[in-house]
Write a protein that binds this DNA or RNA. Structure first.
Length: 568
RNA sequence: CGGGGCGUAGCGCAGCUUGGUAGCGCACUUGACUGGGGGUCAAGUGGUCGCAGGUUCAAAUCCUGCCGUCCCGACCA
């Protein structure tokens, strides 16, 4: 391709509404343009990248036995009513009516459509398992679209759905998809981690998210410094913490803590580290007006873990000040576990604490030198907190580190959630209907592009992994218009590279070298060959890899094989 | 949904306080010079100043309403 026929749309200035690097670079490099909030046009250069990602995903899915199909973006409300998601999904689901007043939605995902297809098309266990996938536009009416295509409302997704008659069979496909995803992200040249994840609203058994590690990531990932353990912080198991301290034997004492309403207040007022304080939160219970949750002062409550506890009502709700007054008889800042007659669930990390400080259940009063069992005994202990860096890893290997990640893939074992509601069955060996067991597997194709840039860029622009670069090589001639000899050499090289199926761009603009260099670095082409009259005098060309600090002179005769070598 | 910011040429911005001919840089067009890291000179193109209403002799500027867009928040004991 030639720049004269493939116009670049690079911008020198950064559009003011782009907050993160990948969004800025995607606009500046001319990959995308915004149409409206959360809606983006992919320009030719950007589309080339998107198609390369798609191609890798497609190849690997096909290699793993996936069958590609294409479902409509618009879906009838009736299907969503069957699974009750029409009510549950909320305003993220874009709903509308056609001219006949029939109700539809724009699909944010396709479980209903694929299950409907399979229940109609597949009637025997002999046809299973199957794994259908599509690469298709989705729409989710996000509360707050942001960061360009990273969290857009309309986006490109690969979604796959597998059907089975047994959990074992599902687990097999699930493992295969896990391995396939690892292949895909490895081929894409990304630094990623598969992590254990919450199954969330979709439900089901096992679930893994695939995260590209990058500081701009919206999720926090906890992983072991030594073992393979990796989990979303939402899910990472907290453990008991060991301590070398033993109780001093001093007895419980009460101190006045006027106006100290928070752990930072109390710890600075009494000059005690937050980790030696307890914080006590009252939340609505399933059987009680209030349930006390006790955490170490410097720890945060993990909502997802708490909601799973049978005594705690979901969604998690902190009780009102009125309830605190009637149950405890003090203000919110002075609650403690001592003498409470409601269930007290203590986080595991508080187990080994000694001589701690906690609210005295009287406004403006705290206890010091409190100890479990002598002063208070929790109804039970449970894992309630977010893990923090330095915690022991739950697999016993090393400690926890926390990094930011961008979720680019998510796989679930759905089980029979959808098939039961939609009555999707096949005849089993005995001729009786068996409810289908399902898995689903998604990759955010457009988000992968943004994530790759977030992970691979420098001050001059994008550093594409070769597998998704819009072009593999660019030829930059200096003063092309002025030399016939140069034109001939450039055309010869261009033709030769094209003949070798190398994706090559020839910058034949009548632009100054600085402009061409800057543009090519901005759009991130991994390999650059500069040809000039001066170089031809010495039968040499100049090569520079996008991440190389210096250029290398290469004999003209050897440049093709040098590039082939670089491309591996 | 709550709070805040911004809307003036394709992009980045000034002008608004104190009402009076719509401006700058980049980009774009033409020409000349230039030619290895975003050139120089000259001449140009391009605007319903987000929309609607109001105040006024006169509104980008003041007032009211609406719309769009971006950012922050939705864990405090």
């Amino acid at each position: 391709m030639r720049t004269s026929q493939f116009p670049l749309a690079t911008l020198r200035e950064v559009p003011s509404d782009a907050a993160i690097t990948s969004h800025q670079l995607m606009l500046r490099a001319g990959l995308i343009r915004r149409l409206a909030s959360g809606l983006y046009t992919w320009l030719p250069l950007g589309l080339k990248v998107l198609r390369k990602v798609e191609a890798i995903v497609r190849e690997e899915m096909n290699a793993a036995g996936g069958l590609e199909l294409l479902m409509p973006t618009v879906q009838p409300a009736e299907l969503w009513q069957e699974t009750e998601r029409w009510e549950k999904y909320g305003p993220e689901l874009l709903r509308f009516k056609d001219r006949h007043e029939n109700t539809f939605c724009y699909g944010p995902t396709h479980e209903e459509v694929i299950t409907d297809l399979v229940r109609n098309e597949i009637s025997s266990y002999k046809s299973l398992p199957v794994n259908y996938y599509q690469i298709q536009t989705k729409f989710r009416d996000e509360i707050r679209p942001r960061f360009g295509v990273m969290r857009a409302r309309e986006f490109l997704m690969k979604d796959a759905y597998s059907f089975h008659t047994s959990e074992e069979c599902l687990a097999k496909t699930y493992d295969k998809m896990h391995a396939t995803y690892c292949n895909i992200f490895t081929r894409l040249g990304l630094n990623f981690r598969p992590v254990q994840a919450d199954t969330g609203s979709i439900g089901g058994n096992a679930s893994h998210e695939f995260h590209v590690l990058a500081d701009a990531g919206e999720d926090a990932i906890a992983f072991s410094t030594e073992g393979d353990f990796a989990a979303n912080v939402e899910l990472a198991a907290g453990t008991e913490l060991t301590t070398t301290k033993t109780a001093s034997g001093e007895s419980l004492s009460k101190v006045a803590t006027p106006n100290a309403k928070s752990i930072p207040d109390v710890s600075s007022f009494l000059n005690i580290a937050a980790e030696h304080c307890l914080k006590t939160l009252l939340v609505t219970g399933t059987e009680h007006d209030a349930v006390a949750l006790v955490l170490r002062g410097d720890h945060e409550l993990n909502t997802i873990k708490a909601e799973k506890h049978p005594l705690i009502a979901a969604p998690l709700t902190l009780v009102s000040d009125t309830v605190i007054q009637s149950v405890v008889g003090c203000e919110a800042g002075s609650i403690g576990p001592i003498g409470l007659d409601i269930p007290v669930i203590a986080d595991l990390a508080t187990n080994n604490m000694v001589d701690f400080t906690c609210g005295a259940n009287e406004t403006g009063q705290h206890h010091q030198n409190a100890n479990w069992h002598t002063d208070a005994t929790p109804t039970e202990t449970a894992d309630l907190r977010n893990v923090v860096e330095g915690d022991p890893s739950p697999d016993g290997k090393g400690t926890i580190k926390i990094a930011r990640g961008i979720e680019v893939g998510h796989i679930f074992q759905l089980g029979t959630n959808y098939s039961e509601k939609m009555n999707a069955t096949v005849n089993d060996e005995s001729g009786r209907p068996a409810t289908l067991t399902m898995g689903c597997y998604g990759i955010g194709v457009s988000r992968v592009v943004a994530a790759a840039i977030e992970q691979h860029h420098d001050d001059n622009g994008i550093l594409w992994p070769t597998s998704m670069a819009p072009f593999e090589v660019v030829i930059v001639p200096i003063n092309l218009q002025k030399s016939h000899r140069l034109q001939e050499a450039v055309e010869k090289l261009y033709t030769e590279l094209k003949g070798l199926k190398i994706d090559v761009l020839l910058d034949d603009r009548k632009a100054r070298p600085g402009v061409m260099f800057s543009d090519m670095e901005l759009i991130g082409i991994p390999h650059r060959v500069v040809l000039s009259d001066r170089g031809l005098d010495a039968e040499q060309v100049e090569y520079k890899g996008r991440t190389d600090s210096d250029t290398t002179d290469i004999p003209l005769k050897g440049i093709v094989s040098h590039i082939q070598q670089q491309l591996g």
